[in-house]
Design a protein around this nucleic acid. Sequence first.
DNA 1: TGGGACATGTAATTTGTTACATGATTTT
DNA 2: AAAATCATGTAACAAATTACATGTCCCA
Lengths: 184, 184
Amino acid sequence: MTIDYAILGMLSWQPLTGYDIKKIIQESPFLYWSGNNNQIYKSLVQLLDNNLVINETKHQEGAPSKKIYSITEFGIKELEKWIVDTNVEVPELKKQFLIQLSWSGRLEVKEIEKLLLKYETEIEKYIAMYKEEQKREKHFKNRPKHEYFIWKMLYENMIMSYENELKWIEKVRDGLLESHVKEG
Amino acid sequence: MTIDYAILGMLSWQPLTGYDIKKIIQESPFLYWSGNNNQIYKSLVQLLDNNLVINETKHQEGAPSKKIYSITEFGIKELEKWIVDTNVEVPELKKQFLIQLSWSGRLEVKEIEKLLLKYETEIEKYIAMYKEEQKREKHFKNRPKHEYFIWKMLYENMIMSYENELKWIEKVRDGLLESHVKEG
DNA sequence: TGGGACATGTAATTTGTTACATGATTTT
DNA sequence: AAAATCATGTAACAAATTACATGTCCCA
């Protein structure tokens, strides 16, 4: 997909500047881009060209002036069409760790266990981070009950995914132990 | 990461042609690239330049001649170094569906349920596919017990990830139902 | 006779990242 | 005095995809 609809979606919620959008992307676990300027400002120009959004420049004293983008009626229709009509895609799961592990056949069990521990530590860090963000409710406070629930579930999805990874690590450990005992 | 180490890893297992590598990537759920020629053949040239692999051209009658790549001693050392020394990365989870759902606030519950059903159907297809592949044991038959277990677990990881997605869908459904009942 | 498997490669394009550039205000 | 926040934008590069190009054999 393109980042365009993600941005259009944010603007369907409330008017925002490019800088705001950047921060929302950087803070969100499921808006998976890095939040770099190049993508955001280019996308905004494109949305503007297609009449999906409008903008208003606000000059500020003692601060750089900003462009506040709002979604148009046409933009809302396009967004709704995209949400409903686009065929849903299964997640793309890029797990470098699995590739590392896949060629670890020549390694000793001890080394593999070390890798698993490193992985576990990293995953736990992320879970803690996302749980904290979910608790802060930054971008879904004061929203209608219905939307509130959905947003909560988006965080929940990411947390569950990483917790699932922890379960898998345990499974691998148990299996390694077993084959170790049998061989010993 | 670069695809280079993934390819080097495959070659640490057995000599392969570019075409072989392409097919392995396309069939594997955790080697997440598309398996396009551009990346593979370029990567092989680079590995060759760095003395990590060597190749041997085999002319065939009634078939295009092929280049069979093998890993060098130096390549094996580099691969092992990469596996052990590279800091493990948490998975990159790109779930377009979550972005679609995140702006579904203005949709009716019925529409959201339709989206969930579509998502569920797609996910189930993938699970079935991966389970089939795991059962076929195509790229890990006849391998030492130790390696066999690891390969099995790599498939297991992907299957668990998608099954986790199904669990999440149920959770969302229950929640939607609940808020629907409360509002009605 | 048309498509698929085998086999290697290139071209064009899209997508995404890091780094550069500017400049004022506020915080440490 | 240095670093972070606010604010917009561009340049250079890296990574990845789709499509193009060529050619044989085998199967339906």
